[in-house]
């Protein structure tokens, strides 16, 4: 029997992640002196209770519905709505992978080398733009960042782990 409310599988994983984070935080807090951990523990235990309520609220049970309704101010029939927009997990992971790739690239080769590479490849592969448009985009972004941050604001942008 599936007790999970419809369309809430992803939310369950996220809620479980927050629950785990709170448990780990409480565990780590006990490594500090009582006066240092007092306030963090107050927050941690409050968070733990709230996360538990959230997890129960995700279930399709009487208690789950009551919790959901009590905190949302919605009447019963409004609480079971399934989210309208549910993109594919693969699509979301790909979007995040681009950001992770950009950050690692910046760490390795620095901003001025990575910015044109990222803008060009992102517009080409994700946006399906022409090579000419991608080149214009990459050059514009790089020139803007160079003029704005290095030339006008006198920032020395990170040059990559090999140079630094």
């Amino acid at each position: 029997m599936n007790i999970l409310a419809p369309g809430k599988r992803g939310a369950l994983y996220f809620a479980l992640g927050l629950f785990a984070l709170t448990v780990v935080f409480i565990y780590l807090s006990y490594a500090y002196a009582p006066e240092v951990r007092l306030f963090p523990l107050m927050v941690g235990y409050t968070g733990l209770i709230l996360c538990t309520l959230d997890l129960v609220g995700l279930t399709d049970t009487g208690l789950g519905r009551s919790i959901d309704a009590a905190f949302s101010g919605k009447v019963d029939e409004e609480t079971r709505k399934v989210p309208k927009f549910a993109p594919k997990l693969s699509r979301q992971l790909i979007a995040m992978a681009w950001m992770v790739g950009l950050t690692i690239g910046i760490y390795l080769i620095g901003f001025m080398a990575m910015v044109p590479v990222y803008v060009f490849s992102s517009m080409l592969f994700q946006g399906k733009k022409s090579v000419k448009q991608c080149a214009y985009g990459a050059i514009s972004a790089t020139v803007f960042i160079w003029v704005m941050f290095e030339l006008l604001l006198k920032y020395e942008l990170y040059r990559g782990v090999f140079v630094e």
Binding site: T103, Y107, F111, V115, S122, L157, Y158, E164
Partner: peptide, 26 residues
Amino acid sequence: HVLVPAVTVVALVGAYALNSEIGDVF
């Protein structure tokens, strides 16, 4: 697909610029 790369790179440079720390980008 034009906006995302442009805003993302400016935002990451902004994240780095305030303290000049690569850790801020992460």
